[in-house]
Write a protein that binds this DNA or RNA. Sequence first.
DNA 1: TAATAGTCATAACGCTTGTTGTGTGAATGG
DNA 2: CCATTCACACAACAAGCGTTATGACTATTA
Lengths: 217, 217
Amino acid sequence: MARTKGDHEARRREVSEAVWRVLAAQGFGGLTLRAVATELGATTGLLTHYFPAKRDLVRHALDLLDARTTSRPRRAGGPGLAAVRAALLDILPLTPEATASNRIWVSSWDTALADPGLSEDHAARYARGRARLAALIATAQERGELPAGDPGRLAAGAQSFALGLVVQALLGPADFPPERQRELVDDYLAALATPAAPEASATPEASEAPEAPAAGS
Amino acid sequence: MARTKGDHEARRREVSEAVWRVLAAQGFGGLTLRAVATELGATTGLLTHYFPAKRDLVRHALDLLDARTTSRPRRAGGPGLAAVRAALLDILPLTPEATASNRIWVSSWDTALADPGLSEDHAARYARGRARLAALIATAQERGELPAGDPGRLAAGAQSFALGLVVQALLGPADFPPERQRELVDDYLAALATPAAPEASATPEASEAPEAPAAGS
DNA sequence: TAATAGTCATAACGCTTGTTGTGTGAATGG
DNA sequence: CCATTCACACAACAAGCGTTATGACTATTA
């Protein structure tokens, strides 16, 4: 052996970090081996030494980003609804690091949508996040801070809201600065927290079927 | 002149439709001139005859998709809150056509995020949608179907919710069939429709600053 | 110290890409 | 009816891509 085995994995991590930097700056359309090598201050020979093919390079970089995202130090939010709020804020691009991560994930959707296997990976990732959120929501409900309702369904709604806000903030950072993102999260949670009044009569189930020629839009 | 001028623009539209088909199937990563030509049953010579460069090809296809999306027949939703609901449902991938369109837009974010100019185009597009939504929300408020509040802010929240739901539905269609998407929209609107109770005390502004080492996540 | 195995640069390979040039047939205008 | 112009197919181009082969250098092991 020429070196310790720990160095090998450490080097693969450094390579993956260079992949992140290229992806955050140029997206998948600009992700080439030569670009990663330049970003790393090395040549493509190094890359092929640690990864047999580009596909493996990208997969390892995304796996590592996922692991780092899920295991990072979370925002402290106290118990109950405050924890839900903290979890949502943790998703948003409120810091440069979170912006870079989100930018990579958003970019990866292009590739993922063209490959059913990758789509499933993404779907599974978001399902995990939804489960975490549902647990926090259930706790908030037990504490009486949120009205009753299927926690999984509420979590799906909250996650959709956060995900869409991520996209808006990335595409139009001027329109969605951190302060505005927090405002919108608080608006959303405030709306959730109010008990449902049965007088809300604007979602008539009878208009479900004949409302439009659905297949023709 | 060899042909009438109308045919020329019609042919460019046919080409753009082939671009849509390739994008919906393979994403931007698989968008090559040869793929478009094959999809069209022609050669790259045709493409270069109608578009000087690939960049123009893509831009025209996206411009046309945008125009077709904004001018398509909208779901009838009646006045007030029902119109808001219809507008949100119009965004979602509830039909194959809407799925294909949304898939293209989601894929385009990768390219857009790498180019500030394109990002601005997208931001402007979503700002327009937000303005439309805000007008509908204001009407619903006048009718007493939604509580008071800045319509633009409510529209931003609703648009984020819809956009995130689009992403979830595209990546995990099994988890988000049309029926579930409608449920979630109705959940969201029901939460909006209930007047805000001032007792909701789970968003303490005092914890804003010291809640976490924000830059270190 | 000699043999070995990991690390990486260098250079070249074949392939695909966007682009360009040339040529042909059909339609139009004078 | 001839000249022109449009609408393409076809073929070739240079550039850039992922991948592979080779070799030099270094650190470890026996």
